[in-house]
Structure formats: structure tokens, C-alpha cells
């Protein structure tokens, strides 16, 4: 099946926009769940960029990297959510501004 002739510029622009949104969310939200969600958004945007690059050259490499990114995201979320559970248990709150015992 043949793909659409999508201008690379616009796909990458979309990826950039999604990334910025994720970054905004990371810096803005205090709840750790939302921060993790923003991280997922950012990872997704990066993956989009990779797949677009692969589609430009018509090679499988972009999708392979996409797969690896997915793996990373999965592992990260698993461990991250486990940590979230522990944070909730110890700090009794999900507010990341309260978890600053590692301050210098």
C-alpha cells in the first residue's frame, strides 16, 4: 500500500508542538501522575519524529526505533508507577513539591 506524500516539515512541526505541550505539562503540573503523563506525551512526540524520518527514506529503521522507544516507555511507566505508589504511601500526597528531602 502506498503512503501519502505528507510534507516532512509539517509532520516534524506536529512532533515539535506535541513535545512542547508535553514539556509545558511537565513544568506546570504538580501531581506526579500528570508529570508521568506529560513524559509519555513527550516520548510519543519523539517517536512520531522517528517514524516520519523512516517514512521519508522508505526504510524500516524509523519504525524499529519507534519500537524501542515503546519498550523504554513501558519499562519506565512500570517502574514509575511503582514509585508513585510508594510516594503516596510515605508522603500521603502526590504533590511533587512536597517531596523535596533531597534538597541541597
Amino acid at each position: 500500500m502506498s503512503g501519502l506524500q505528507v510534507p516532512m516539515e509539517q509532520v516534524l512541526a506536529l512532533a515539535g508542538l506535541l513535545f512542547s505541550c508535553g514539556l509545558l505539562g511537565l513544568m506546570l503540573r504538580r501531581n506526579i501522575i500528570f508529570m508521568l503523563m506529560s513524559l509519555e506525551v513527550m516520548l510519543n512526540a519523539a517517536a512520531l519524529a522517528f517514524v516520519a524520518a523512516g517514512a521519508k527514506w522508505g526504510q524500516a529503521d524509523g519504525q524499529i526505533i519507534f519500537l524501542l522507544i515503546l519498550t523504554i516507555a513501558a519499562a519506565e511507566v512500570a517502574v514509575g508507577l511503582g514509585l508513585v505508589l510508594q510516594i503516596q504511601r510515605r508522603f500521603k500526597t502526590l504533590d511533587m513539591d512536597q517531596a523535596r528531602r533531597l534538597r541541597g
Binding site: Q5, V6, E9, L12, A13, S20, A55, G58
Partner: peptide, 27 residues
């Protein structure tokens, strides 16, 4: 907001000279 906007601006600036299109071939 400011930081994210700045970053977006830079990314857009970087993308100015990327006129290529996708190949049109499905993988």
C-alpha cells in the same frame, strides 16, 4: 509557558529549511 514557547520557537526556526516530503512508499 514562556520556556515552552521559547523551545517551540526554536524548533520551528530549525525546521524552516526542511522541504522534503515523505517517500510515498509504505513500509
Amino acid at each position: 509557558g514562556t520556556m515552552a514557547a521559547l523551545l517551540l520557537l526554536e524548533l520551528m526556526l530549525a525546521l524552516r529549511h526542511a522541504p522534503a516530503t515523505t517517500s510515498g512508499v509504505a513500509v
